[in-house]
Amino acid sequence: MIGRMFWLVTALFAGIAAHLATILYAPGLTFERKLNVIVAAHKPNSFFLMTPDTQAGFLPTSTAEDIVGLCLVDLSKGKVVIDAHVPQSFWNFSIYGSSGQQIYDINDVEAGADSFSVELTKAKSLIEQVRSNADPDDAGKIANSGWHAEVPGERALAVLWFPVRDQTQRKTLEDEVKRTNCNAN
């Protein structure tokens, strides 16, 4: 009886472990595999435009007619500044954390300009937050940096999306967006 109870409890925990592994790790592996194919020809902290045939499957609200730009952000060596150049139209700029959750977004109405900068830094740990509270200069630096987002973890994905109203203008719009930089400082 005790032996059966042991296996029952062990099977229960094994089932919970298998469930969590399926939820937490399997989707991440699939996503990483696809992301690695997309960014294969590009270094981290470099901005590039996705091809129309890959963007619709990657960003489900986009279509092949839209323009989608990506930057795989690597914060392991410090902050990253994205200097974006966008046409005077409707656009959306989002930052996704390594978990896949959207952590920041800005659009044309909020930015009010056709070029803007976003500084990305790694989110501070609890201990670092306590330390920085004792250092008033640190808070001042963040306040003076303009658009700023803190990213949990060392990696993030910056996504710039905008629709193309007239496909004959696509090349012109792409050339304008290609001026966007994603630089590690």
Partner: peptide, 11 residues
């Protein structure tokens, strides 16, 4: 989030 990532997509 896993629902979208399992399809190789962002939310």
């Amino acid at each position: 989030v896993g629902h979208f990532k399992a399809q190789g997509a962002l939310p």
